[in-house]
Simulated assay, not measured.
Amino acid sequence: MIAALLNFLFIILLGIFIVVGVVAYKIYRTFHSVKKQFKGFRGQDNGNGQGRQQYRQTSGDDEIIIDRRTPDEMNRKIFSKNEGEYVDYEEEK
Rank of each mutant, 00 (worst) to 15 (best):
V34W: 08
D61T: 06
G40C: 13
E91I: 10
F10W: 06
I66D: 06
N82L: 06
N75T: 01
F31P: 00
L9G: 01
Q53K: 15
G15K: 03
R42W: 04
R69P: 03
D45S: 10
L9Y: 02
R76Q: 12
F10T: 14
N48Q: 13
R69S: 14
I64N: 11
Q37C: 07
Q57G: 06
I18M: 04
V34D: 10
K26E: 12
R76K: 08
R56H: 13
G51N: 12
Y28R: 09
D67V: 12
Y86T: 13
I2G: 00
D62Y: 15
V22T: 09
F31N: 10
K81L: 08
G49W: 04
R52K: 15
V34M: 12
V23E: 09
D45L: 08
L14N: 12
D88W: 01
L9P: 00
G60W: 10
R76T: 06
N75H: 00
K36E: 05
V19N: 03
G51E: 13
I18F: 03
E85Y: 07
N46E: 09
E91K: 08
E63V: 11
F10M: 12
Q54S: 12
G21F: 06
I2K: 00
I64L: 15
E90D: 14
L6T: 02
K77R: 02
L14F: 14
N75W: 00
R56T: 13
F41I: 07
D72K: 06
R76F: 01
G47N: 08
A24D: 04
D45M: 05
L5E: 02
F38V: 10
N75Q: 02
I16N: 01
A3Y: 01
N46I: 09
L6M: 07
I78P: 00
V87Q: 09
E63M: 13
F38R: 10
L6H: 04
K93W: 03
E90M: 07
K36Q: 11
T58L: 12
R52F: 14
Q53W: 06
K35P: 00
G60Q: 11
L6G: 01
E73Y: 01
Y28K: 11
V20P: 00
V22Q: 02
K93P: 01
E83G: 02
E73Q: 09
L14Q: 12
T58N: 15
G47Y: 04
G84D: 09
